[in-house]
Structure formats: structure tokens, C-alpha cells
Amino acid sequence: MPIESYSLSSLPRRAVLRYLGYRGQEIASEIDARIDRFVARVLELAHPRSSWAVFDVAGRSARDDGTSETHLAGTALTLMGSSIATHMDGAVACAVMAVTVGMDVERELKRLSATDSVASVIFDAAASVAVEEAAAACQKSIIAEAAARGLHANARFSPGYGDLPLAVQPVLLASVDAQRRLGIALTDTLLMVPTKSITAVMGIFETSRAARRSELMSGSLA
């Protein structure tokens, strides 16, 4: 169950602009300068870290009400719902990850939202991009760990997507010791603080996605 920290030296500006609803409008130099300033502030305050673990898939079952469940070995985490079942279809293992940029960013978000609404929207967008970047770095580590075992990881899937409920958050976070290791806490409505945090799972497969797809194709032809 490794802990990793990442250093971000820049953020993709295009992604920040996308969060700000940018669709090719002319950007006043005043706004341009502010975007640069708050991207720099995010980079200064972010402490991107992750904690992740890989658990074997122990089996699949269906509840009385028909909800499908994916069980994992060595963790109390069970993944419920049809969308995650599809995502994990054929997986031999499941990587569980929690990523955050930390509480300094959270505090600055709070400070700016009370004092400077323009800055807070720009900072919020940049911080969202920062945690996405951190999640991408964590995914890379998981893909590398899978590859070292001759396996393949698919895309990440978060609670709240499809019908995977937020109710899995407490156990998901506990299974990577995210509170102690990363300082991620949950509100009683199951939202994470720091808000710029991401939890997700990734399916790990014996064959690559391309191979799985062609298998599927040949299966359907047969």
C-alpha cells in the first residue's frame, strides 16, 4: 500500500480554461494575468499525494434486489452496481486509489471565496486541474505496477459515476488508510474534504483492452 507524492511544475492551461467555460473568447490581459497568478498560487500550495493498493477480485454476486456486487480479497470494500460491474468485467484485480492536493489549497479556496470571487473561480478551476494531474500520476504508477506483473489496467472509475454510490466512500478511504496518510476526511453527506481530492478504482486485467475487444468481437462473430 504505497504512499506517493508528486511534484507539479505546471498545469495545462487549456484544461484550466475549459473549467472556466472558455470557448475561444478574447481574453483581456487583466484576466490573462490573473489566470497565471492563480495557477502559480495553486502550484505553490498544492501538495499532491496519493495512497493506493491493489486487491484481487474475489468473486461476483447479485443481491436479492438484483444489484450486482464485485467482491475483493483483503479489503472490506465491495463495489456495488451495474456500471462498476461492467467496468470490472473480466478483471482479476482492482486498484483502489485516493489522491488529494491537500488542505492548503482547501484553505485558500475558502479564503478566496470569502474575499475575491473572481480569484476564487480561477483558483478553483486550477486546483481541479491540479488534482486531475495528480490522479493521472497515480494512475501511471498503478499501470506500471500492473505491467510489472504482466497485467493491464483500465480507466479509473469514481464513486458517484453511474450507479456506484457515494456510500462506498468510508470503506474505500479506509482501505487505503486515506485519513491518516493523506488527511482526507468525509462529511456526513460523504463528501471529501479537502474537496480537491479524488477516489477511484481501476480494473486490472490479464489481457490488454485491445485484446479484450478483439476477443469480444471474435466471440460475437462465432
Binding site: Q25, I31, I35, V118
Partner: peptide
């Protein structure tokens, strides 16, 4: 009409 994007609108309001 899409000539302004969000931060611009907000900065103006400010």
C-alpha cells in the same frame, strides 16, 4: 452571445 467568458464577467461585476 459568448464574447465574454466567466472570469471576465465576474471581473466586470466586481
Amino acid at each position: 452571445r459568448g464574447a465574454f467568458f466567466l472570469p471576465q464577467l465576474m471581473a466586470s461585476a466586481e
